[in-house]
């Protein structure tokens, strides 16, 4: 009913955040935050940055951060895309447990390890597809749709393992969790490979743009002829796949599938990593490498707490305080404050 008579001409608009030249990479709040956390770790433990070569692999706290951060980083890769579509996947922790349980149960009953791994990854894909179907075809809100599998999935994993921690000594599974390649732990190699592959396949194809479009405005996406349903199915399936990979790593790491504890609450860490990485829960713009960076910030913090010698009662307090600082730093409010500072980059 209103017809504005004044046409607001776009004159001085804030610079659009993407794409940025590499030089600005180091001024991003995430990178600064990671540097700050690592610096604090170094203060707490002077040997933090020392990396040695031992038994054919790199060895040191920094490597531990990468290695321990890998499962959440892998979850975050899938989660980033889900969140970019304005969704969320709460089931990834449970899917990790299912994947580990599947692989462990199969190898202990004599199935060859490659088949067991393929089955675990397939199970993850199916779990993701299930979520996708609930979200697209049945139009259930993502948080509810994936909550179903979050609760039921862990039960499913316990059914598969019959409540035991299924231990195994299969060299392939153990290699996935604890092996090394080019001196780096396998989880790091896997996470890096997945990150690069996922980034390339969304940025070198149209998928990234189309996913962002669906997240920004699903209705407009439909009107523009996008196959939003198919995109969502792919995105949720991929998140399930990532969770399965992560589940294999966690199982391989402890040489056993612990249905009760594998991936427990990791979905929340993954969501946090994505948010720290700057992807809004409102969907739209996303960055996979930044989410991985977010996972590394979280892990650097965990490792820092471990080596700090603080009493464990402080763990959560310290962690949440740091996270609040990071989130405030990247909020639009602080961005405006920074812009007002004299000499700040315009």
């Amino acid at each position: 009913m209103t017809r504005p008579t004044v046409d607001l001409r776009p004159t001085t608009q804030p610079p659009f955040p993407r794409p940025r030249p590499l030089a600005t990479f180091f001024t991003r709040p995430q990178v600064i935050a990671l540097a700050a956390v690592l610096f604090v770790n170094w203060l707490l433990f002077p040997g933090f940055f020392s990396v040695t070569w031992q038994d054919g692999r790199f060895f040191g706290s920094l490597i531990d951060v990468l290695n321990r951060g890998a499962p959440v980083a892998i979850l975050a890769i899938g989660m980033t895309m889900v969140i970019a579509t304005k969704g969320v996947d709460l089931s990834v922790g449970a899917v990790m447990a299912i994947s580990g349980a599947t692989a462990a149960t199969l190898v202990t009953s004599g199935i060859p390890a490659p088949i067991a791994v393929a089955a675990a990854l397939g199970t993850g894909l199916l779990c993701g597809l299930w979520n996708g179907i609930l979200v697209t075809l049945l139009e259930i809100q993502p948080i509810i749709a994936t909550l179903v599998l979050m609760v039921a999935g862990r039960g499913l994993a316990q059914l598969i393992t019959e409540g035991y921690i299924v231990t195994f000594s299969d060299p392939l599974l153990i290699f996935i969790g604890t092996g090394s390649f080019l001196g780096f732990p396998m989880p790091v190699i896997i996470a890096a490979t997945l990150m690069i592959a996922a980034t390339l396949s969304v940025r070198r194809t149209a998928l990234g743009l189309l996913i962002e479009a669906v997240g920004v405005n699903r209705s407009a996406a439909r009107f523009a002829g996008l196959k939003a349903g198919a995109l969502l199915l792919i995105v949720y399936s991929f998140a399930g796949f990532c969770a399965a990979v992560s589940g294999l790593i966690v199982a391989g790491d402890i040489r056993g599938a612990d249905a009760n504890n594998a991936g427990l609450w990791l979905e929340l860490d993954a969501i946090l990593a994505v948010v720290i990485g700057g992807t809004s829960l409102m969907g739209g713009r996303f960055s996979i490498p930044m989410a991985v960076l977010g996972a590394m910030i979280i892990q650097a913090m965990n490792t820092g707490i471990l080596i700090s010698g603080f009493s464990p009662q402080f763990n959560l307090v310290v962690k949440s305080a740091v996270i609040i600082v990071i989130l405030v730093l990247q909020s639009p409010l602080s961005a405006r404050l920074f812009r007002r500072l004299p000499g700040a980059p315009k």
Binding site: F16, N217, A220, A221, G284
Partner: peptide, 9 residues
């Protein structure tokens, strides 16, 4: 509602 993708360029 159905046309523009506000956050996209």
């Amino acid at each position: 509602l159905d046309g523009i993708f506000g956050d996209l360029s």
